[in-house]
Amino acid sequence: MMSVAGSISPLVAGLWLLNIVLDTGGQLAFKAAAGDEGAGDGLARWKHMASRPWLWLGVASYVIEFLVWIAFLSLIPLSEGVLLGSINIVAIMVAGRFLFGEKLTRLRVAGILLVTLGVVIVGVGG
């Protein structure tokens, strides 16, 4: 639409960052909700999850993210938007590494670097 190559406005950049925070935060909240020891099984597990904030934090993040993503895509071309959004894959893996001590193997690091490189190319060059 109206976007010229390389013209990412502050609003678009802000929505992009907010989307990363909400997506990663939502996933981590779901992880915390699902990984809770002693939550039981079946219905008891769901009741346990519903009585604690993590599940709801995750749901709230995703609802807001839904709107943020719509706003983001309405301001830039879709082909550019989906590529820039790929950074969420990187964010969640890095967060998993720091918060849950998940392993970053050499292949994973290569994947993370390639995705990041791709996002930078698109961000700089439109």
């Binding site: 994947g111 390639l114 990041t116 791709g118 996002v119």
Partner: peptide, 12 residues
Amino acid sequence: GAIAIIAGIVCL
């Protein structure tokens, strides 16, 4: 950018 991102996704 797409080529780099896809290569990265395949690695992951």
